[in-house]
């Protein structure tokens, strides 16, 4: 910042000499280069090297080894399931409080809860679910009183299903937060116009409301997918590595080179970045499309 003198000529004038104006952004870009660019570059370069330091594509080929490919598949599965289920439930919940005829207070309460819950994750969340659905959890014990023993039928909170239930705790509130403005954006006149032309409630949803909401719905679900895909702390606390998720494998690789091949670890990280990148890109694209309609 000190590159610009205190008496810098007219500040608010549209800049003509871009080179000097760009200097004002130097601290930001330097920070980004040091703490985003450098680490990522390191991982990228590392992912193209073998143990002897030679350039290779082998690490990416090795992502196909059963254990790693399986980890990717399981992570994708968990993320997909929680994104779709959380997305649908979050949408219904948001719809219920906005257009379902419920009192207005409930809507405000839900929005605040969602803000908290979507930010409540990691260690305490995993613990809370263990106290709820663990072997001695409150709900488990409660169900046993009625002769239903989830654990007897093979359920455990430390399983994939258990993990999905935990992830849903921050997934659907996030859906509520993002989809609420879109539902609000459904103008009452659209419904009235449709009815005026003879459409039934179903026809209105089929032909007008759902098509308008579709890009936002799909985009947000993809965002939820990425949200679950990148999560590490919750799974770490809950499953202690019993379920081979990609973030957990990367964690093990950080703690000690368990793959005996740093390059493969870097390639795995890059695989994760690629999947996150694609989901964010699709999300942005769909969001832009939805914006265009919503003026």
């Amino acid at each position: 910042m000190t590159a610009i003198s205190e008496r810098a000529a007219p500040l608010a004038r549209p800049a003509r000499r871009f080179s000097r104006s760009w200097l004002g952004l130097a601290p930001f870009f330097l920070f980004a280069i040091f703490f985003i660019g450098a680490p990522v570059t390191y991982l990228v370069l590392g992912s193209f090297q073998n143990n002897e330091g030679q350039t290779t594509l082998q690490n990416y080929a090795d992502l196909a080894t059963p254990s790693i490919a399986n980890a990717f598949l399981i992570t994708i599965e968990v993320s997909l399931v929680t994104a779709v289920v959380g997305g649908i439930f979050g949408f219904l919940l948001a719809y219920a409080v906005i257009l379902g005829g419920l009192p207005r207070v409930l809507r405000d309460a839900l929005m605040t809860f969602s803000g908290v819950a979507s930010n409540f994750a990691g260690v305490p969340l995993a613990l809370a679910f263990i106290f709820t659905l663990g072997q001695l959890g409150m709900v488990t014990v409660f169900l046993k009183n009625f002769g239903i023993d989830p654990y007897a039928s093979g359920f455990t909170i430390y399983s994939k299903l258990g993990l999905e239930l935990v992830y849903l705790y921050f997934q659907f509130p996030l859906m509520v937060l993002i989809i609420a403005p879109a539902i609000d954006g459904l103008r009452p006149e659209w419904r009235e116009a449709a009815e005026n032309m003879g459409a039934s409630s179903r026809q209105y949803w089929q032909r007008v409301a759902l098509p308008i909401l579709f890009p936002t719905l799909l985009g947000t679900m993809i965002l939820l997918f990425g949200n679950a895909f990148g999560a590490q702390a919750t799974a770490y606390q809950l499953t202690s590595g019993l379920i081979p998720l990609v973030p957990l494998l990367i964690g093990n690789q950080i703690a000690g080179d368990v793959l005996h091949n740093p390059g493969l670890g870097y390639a795995m990280a890059m695989g994760m970045v690629a999947i996150m990148g694609i989901s964010i890109a699709i999300y942005t694209l769909l969001q832009r499309r939805a914006e265009r309609w919503r003026r």
């Binding site: 990522v40 590490q232 994760m272 996150m276």
Partner: peptide
């Protein structure tokens, strides 16, 4: 795009 675990790795 860059999950925390990848960031701290790098």
């Amino acid at each position: 795009v860059i999950p925390a675990v990848v960031l701290v790795f790098g």
